[in-house]
């Protein structure tokens, strides 16, 4: 036998699913959401998407070159961070703000920790929150959608959640006209971040990820379920003041957060029980921040807080090894 023989320990076959193929699938799944965003917000949204993605890729290259490490942008993870960051920015975000966000996401959110797999926090959310705190004006200048071809310009306005928060702060009650526009919110007809506009498009992409078994139901279902239950409880107590659960669902970043940000593999628990706890925790924190916090939107903060808790959750949700006693029971 002339040729080289491979000697290795078992197993000798592999599923064929690799990190780049997983990341590619996530990117594909974001196409509908990006498409809808560009439809509603036009060229500004497109440029935010491009600047954020290219910015993340460039930052990753620079960081890895500086640290004399192999450049790994081909794995697709930096591109995902870029797209997700863009989806978490307002469509009117100026180019320098977007670029700064990209640099923060990759350099501070990911590479300082050692790159892919080592970062404790979702890089895109780290960038979003840093920008939100440092540039509150630019980060909260929202505009109503102006669909392509409608001839409208982007006009500054408030997000539904922001509107509600202002109204509640001023009058203690929810504005009546907000009750009626749920369907429009769901399809994407509301002011907000690029990726917050269309829950439908995001769910479409998430459906593909479910089909590919890249996404599991555990975190999104518990997250959304908790928000519905908890916000429902508040709504039942005082419907005049608190918005109903549907409002919570279709406005703001909940769908984007629950299906894409809170399911980032690297920064969430690995055991099933851990994922369930993570989802519930995100849900509780989101509702509390939305209803009682200083910011109208709580998704980013909730997820980052739960990211911080992830090592702890992992530690205490070690699955029960086959053949060992259940807690307080016998085998």
């Amino acid at each position: 036998m002339s040729q080289q023989l491979y000697l290795s320990s078992s197993p000798h076959v592999h599923s064929g699913e690799t990190t780049p193929s997983v990341m590619r699938a996530v990117l594909y799944s974001l196409v509908p959401a990006c498409g809808v965003a560009v439809y509603f917000f036009g060229i500004p949204a497109l440029s935010v998407l491009l600047i954020a993605t290219l910015g993340c890729l460039a930052t990753e290259v620079v960081c890895q070159r500086l640290m004399r490490q192999p450049v790994t942008i081909a794995d697709g993870s930096a591109a995902i961070t870029g797209v997700l960051l863009a989806l978490n920015l307002p469509p009117t975000s100026p180019w320098w703000l977007t670029l700064l966000g990209a640099v923060i996401a990759i350099a501070v959110g990911k590479q300082v920790y050692g790159g892919l797999g080592s970062n404790p926090f979702n890089p895109a959310l780290v960038a979003r929150v840093v920008l939100l705190i440092s540039f509150p004006v630019q980060m909260t200048t929202w505009s109503a959608p102006a669909p392509l071809g409608s001839g409208l310009d982007l006009v500054t306005t408030a997000t539904p959640l922001g509107e509600w928060k202002n109204a509640v702060m001023l009058t203690g009650a929810m504005p009546a006209e907000m009750q009626g526009s749920m369907a429009g919110y769901f399809l994407g007809n509301m002011p907000g971040c690029i990726g917050e506009v269309s829950a439908l498009a995001l769910l479409l992409g998430a459906g593909y990820l479910f089909y590919r078994r890249i996404l599991t139901w555990h975190i999104p279902a518990t997250y959304v379920g908790t928000v519905v239950l908890l916000s429902g409880a508040f709504w039942l107590i005082n419907p005049a003041k608190y918005p109903n659960p549907v409002f919570h669902l279709v406005t703001g970043g909940l769908v984007l957060g629950a299906f894409y940000m809170a399911t980032d593999m690297v920064t969430t628990p690995v055991s099933i029980r851990g994922m369930l706890i993570f989802g519930v925790g995100c849900g509780v924190l989101t509702v509390l921040i939305r209803l009682f916090g200083g910011y109208p939107e709580g998704v980013s903060f909730a997820i980052l807080l739960m990211n911080a808790a992830t090592p702890l959750i992992d530690r205490y949700t070690k699955p029960r090894t086959f053949g060992t006693a259940r807690q307080g029971g016998s085998v």
């Binding site: 076959v13 592999h14 690799t18 990190t19 892919l116 890249i214 690995v270 055991s271 994922m275 053949g323």
Partner: peptide, 25 residues
Amino acid sequence: DIANSPEGPCIRCARCVQACPMNLM
């Protein structure tokens, strides 16, 4: 037929945890 993609860092995707028949991590 031999799987030989290069080893990368763990992306904590939890697939191994869910695949393990002994319920390990």
